[in-house]
Amino acid sequence: MIFSEAEVVTVVEMISVQELRGWVQAGWIAPAIGQSGPVFDELDVARVRLVCELRGDLEVPEEAVPLVLSLLDQVHGLRREMQSLAKAVDAQPENVRAAVKATYRSLMTG
């Protein structure tokens, strides 16, 4: 599912084209570049919605939005790495998993 600028404004409802362009320029949203303007996918649209909610109900001031997005992107980056690491450990033979588990426990309990 892909959306043009105008379609994003229509589905998200809470945003003007000018605002959307400002957010893209600021790098908050990174749509693909299409032959006749930016092209948004569902992830981009969900992110536009998220920024709307941050600015609206969550009352995050304009200047603080990049900070919140940066932290969220870090959390998502970490979640992704954690999931991959967990899968990598799961794919190991039983004795390796047990060794990883034991070392992990001793590190966490200090």
Partner: peptide
């Protein structure tokens, strides 16, 4: 409502993900 994180978690390219945290 599908929240942003549903999309972010299932995005294989991780294009918004940042590695700054590690």
């Amino acid at each position: 409502q599908r929240y942003y994180r549903h999309y972010a978690d299932s995005d294989p390219s991780g294009r918004y993900h940042s590695d700054a945290g590690y």
